[in-house]
Design a protein around this nucleic acid. Sequence first.
DNA 1: GTTCGCCTAGAAC
DNA 2: CTCCGACAAATTCGG
DNA 3: CCGAATTTGTCGGAGGTTCTAGGCGAAC
Length: 837
Amino acid sequence: MPPKKRKLNNASEGSTPARTLDYFFGKQNQKSSPRPSSTPDPTLPSTQIDQTDQILTDEKLAQKLQAEFDAEARVFSASQQPPEPVQPQVTSPKKSAQADAAPDTTKLSTPKPTVAQNILSLSATPSSDDPLVASLPLDENPLTFAPSKCLPGLLPSWTSESGAPYALLTRCFTLVNNTQSRIKIVDTLTNTLRLLIEGDPDSLLPAVWLSTNAIAPPWVQGMELGIGGAAISKALKTACGLDNRALKALYDKVGDAGDVAFEAKKKGGFTFRKPKPLTIKGVYQSLVKIAKAQGPGSGETKQRIVDRLLQDARGGEESRAFLLSIPPNASYNVPYTQEELRKLKKDSLAAIYAKTETLLKTLFARHPDYNALIPALLNHGISSADILLEKCGLTLHTPLRPMLGSITRDLAEVLSRLEGRAFACEYKYDGQRAQVHCSSDGHVSIYSRHLENITGQYPDLVALIPQIKEDEVEGFILEGEVVAVDKVTGALMPFQTLAGRGRKDVDLSKVKVDVCLFAFDLMYLNGKALLEEPFRRRRELLRTKFKEVPGKFTWVKSQDATSEDAEAIQEFFKKAVEDKCEGIMVKLLDPEPGADLTNAALGNDEDPALPDPDSTPSPSKKGSKPSLAEKKPRRKPLLSTYQPDKRLESWLKVKKDYTASHSDTLDLVPIAAWHGQGRKARWWSPILLAVRNDETGALEAVCKCMSGFTDAFYRAMREFYDDGEVTGERKNTHPRRPGWIEYSGPEPDVWFEPCEVWEVAFADVTVSPTYTAGMGMAVEDRGLSLRFPRFLRKREDKGVEEASSSEVLVRIWRKQMDRGNGKRHREEAEGVEIEEE
DNA sequence: GTTCGCCTAGAAC
DNA sequence: CTCCGACAAATTCGG
DNA sequence: CCGAATTTGTCGGAGGTTCTAGGCGAAC
């Protein structure tokens, strides 16, 4: 059985756009699947695609895919390529057997040779295969780049059936990968998207999905690829005849899966069969099918080509593309011609770009689904803000992107940033963020911070939600923190307890860990979006239109203040930590005093240079307002409205472990390390750290650490702990684990001679299933570890003998568990076997 | 045929 | 979740 | 007053611990 249950995704309740998903994929489906009815059903956008697959077994699906790919191959070779000796796909004994062998012989694969083979061939397609595509000046300035000039040469090979070639995307991705300039990246993407808009709008949506490293919005379940690094390694080993050591050596050298694949192929002398041309739509469909079939293919493609591509500057490229290009049969026009834009001053051009980007980001924040956004844009262009807002606005049961908090070093920073304004301080509970949607019929859906649908995980909440509203409430969207609580006392429990709950299709009667929902915001109520309302207003509605359900639903603990109230805030913060919270959240209550209250939010107005409505403190624009005599560091203005798109991280997060003064640190000994990957390929990362056991004198591993090091520090470390690769002579390292070090886990690449002490910060001490530090001293048969460990500094003044002991670690754990009224819980944890039932 | 342990993937922080 | 580094944009500085 | 230097904002990359869900082989 395929692992993931394919739940049907409820179609959004809003009106269906004229161009539905089926518009994009319908043709393909008709061509490729023998489904009897091909009439698109507009009410089932994203799942309709493959409904028939849901009843197929993996094997049948594989066969079906095989047939489709064969057919595809035939179409291609017939229509546009000199027929090449296409090898028999599955049964060829030798050469293609290598490709087949990749996934076939791996332990974890169900046989799905065709998928694998074709996927594998994706990456084997050098973009230079298509000279037409390769010669496109995709990285040209979009203001001079002319799709209309390129397209005549390209279109003949883009049959209406197949659409644009995948080579176009790989070419774009290659260019993007080869530069670090964001401007260049946006230009390249803009041009690529424009080619598609003007030449093959049907391929636009799949192309956007592929570019964003996803194939469906996160809340649609059953669309994970299920392919990871391990599958790639195995495939590589078998495909290129490398053994573990050789492969590891390669990884350590280049540190990137894609590059490894490339090198491995060279080394192994392995030649792929001549790949057949792929199309954007085809690749997208293949990925969708892999996701649905849950069969492992070689994920090399994903890793190398699809994987790392830029969420970068999300919004910029799309909005610019739509600003410059329109699809062939568009019923609208672009607001400015290329020449007009080119003649503009730099400032005004930037303003126009900024305006459309703002609009697009707003749309995406409120309705983060390309399946809705792209069709709307194709149908209406970027200029008709109100139509777009209507099509892609805030919708019940479609999650919006959450407002985030930026970290703050200490309270002083908070006070100075918010001087002169009223704000609310709220407990920051240690649980899971939840966005709760409820429509008037009582239907509830719940989304995580990353917009996953977690409704099935909290049947208890689903049952609870209808009880929390006052009578006059119909539909609403609110946000809160789900926290594990003690069944009897209602005391807050640590995050680890919450994490122990089941996740999938949880049965209400089997819930073992009770939770309480602490609400902190309200974004939608009775048909009205509240995003533009100041927080004070949203909070008032949240408090008056909903009612507490003891132990299950209440409001976040909160206290209003201004910068004058330093001590009170300090007290509140300490109380929060004492009450087992991570710290506090600080949020502005009211809009900027001088700000525009009408607050149209979107630039649906004339002036393209219009500044952001809510933001304008106009600190000192144009010398008109020189004074105030303060030279505070200028800072981005914070918002009281709920608009995650405008300013990222508009709330302030004050956590207990940000400042050393409020949290413990540990002095640990680096004892081992691994070769880093990617950017850190030349250094040791992560590093294994240990505490001392005073009884035995041993060093007990407590955690790995990779955060907090500067590049300079890495460089020095690589020289100081040399396995011989750098200076040719071994320094401070051992090839094997010294006897006085206790650790059982994945084998490090190198062992260090323990000779330093590092001060390390962390958020909490956790009970560990893997680490041995303080084994049995806190919880039977369990060691302890650290949550969010990061390097602070080297303790030059301390020797290894002065490193923190496991005693210290245990003491911190006890203190942490004893906070609030949690002493009883600590004793329970100590006494009761975790494993017991 | 079931059950157990081991591994990977994904997602929460 | 964490941190750092890279780019780009926004301000301030220096002539 | 304009260009250079500096600060600030944003984003992406690399990876931390721990939990469940599923796949798969081995043992019963």
